[in-house]
Design a binder for these strands. Structure first.
Lengths: 196, 196
DNA sequence: TCCTCACTAGATAGATCGATCTAGCGAGAC
DNA sequence: GTCTCGCTAGATCGATCTATCTAGTGAGGA
């Protein structure tokens, strides 16, 4: 069955998210995936490094779709941005503050120690930024303002995850949700003024 | 000489910041500190765990003073907030994107795996939030708004560090600096309107 | 039927991990 | 002088890490 590769990726996504890259052993991943040792090196000949690169890319795409879904679900972009932060907070509560961003911990761990994985995380972050930028432009934010604003929103989300997981409260996520909604509203008003 | 304890703490601060907790070995810390193995367990009987807790507390205080210094250096709080982000970006450039927040990587690693260290990071973050809240109130932000705003500013800083270290650009830090300055300015204007 | 090959399975190697152990150094007390 | 004790020094232990190795399984094609 080829599902073994999928189970390994699912397990590594979970464990990297909770414990990081260096904190997660190959044996632990395989135990959670219910897969034998040899299977890993068959599907990922490059070992842990190749597995991590594949995990980052896959988890990054999945999380982008999850967040994008929230940003398109509600009535308007301002409300959706705030709700996305609130929703992320609810997920944290539901998972004992474990399931935040799937690649954040790994990104910080490898940024100065593993160039291959650093590039993998950089690509994911860039794709998120591009995606949110497009979404903001469609909603009416001026082209010149959209990318910096996307960058700020994503930074606030990642930063609020750090505070939330450390303090076990969603205060930072809620405060950031309100603040980011205000920034988007202000940007939309500026655009409306300029084109009036 | 009692400087050994200090050297060990300085080395662990450096290495935890760059590589995280699980990614840094005790032997590596002692090698960088120029200290023998036995000294660590004399000064920190609790081993790596106790060393990490002490490192988090000390590095947290040091970094708070560093940032507070920047936030009090310039002409007004709005300018100072923006400059603090720019200055953090310059530090990253000067250190090959290694020296960001000294406890962020560790905080994410231990949040779901080590309750002692999770609490240590939570205390540092709380003290930072309290400190920035007070600073904003002194600058004229309404009491009810000050803490959420402090929370947002610190979240944006931590999140921008993630993007900066992964992508090796300071774009996120600059965008966040501008946005946070705008949020502070808006909060000050609201306070001025309310008391007019 | 039998061969092939993608995949599973786990033993094992070699390195490194954190922690403990005993031994020794050297400044100050008396 | 010598005794004490805070501290240095590093050998060593058992556990665990990633990676490699050989062997075995089973479905599909000729």
């Amino acid at each position: 069955m080829t599902g073994t590769r999928e189970r390994i990726l699912a397990a590594s996504t979970d464990l990297f998210r909770r414990q990081g890259y260096t904190g997660t052993g190959i044996k632990q991943i395989l135990a959670e995936a219910g897969a034998p040792f040899g299977s890993l090196y068959h599907h990922f000949p490059g070992g842990k490094n190749e597995l991590a690169a594949a995990t980052i890319a896959r988890a990054g795409d999945e999380y982008a779709q999850l967040v994008a879904g929230k940003l398109l679900a509600g009535p308007d972009i301002v409300t959706n941005v705030r709700d996305a932060f609130v929703s992320a907070g609810q997920t944290l509560i539901d998972t004992s503050y474990a399931d935040a961003c799937p690649i954040e911990t790994v990104a910080l761990e490898v940024a100065s120690t593993n160039e291959t994985l650093r590039l993998a995380t950089a690509e994911v972050f860039e794709s998120w930024t591009v995606g949110l930028t497009a979404l903001l432009e469609v909603a009416g934010v001026a082209a010149a303002e959209a990318r910096p604003l996307a960058s700020v929103i994503l930074s606030a989300l990642e930063g609020a995850f750090v505070f939330a997981r450390a303090s076990r409260t969603t205060d930072a996520l809620e405060a950031c949700g309100e603040a980011m909604a205000a920034l988007v509203r202000a940007a939309l008003e500026r655009t409306a003024d300029a084109t009036r």
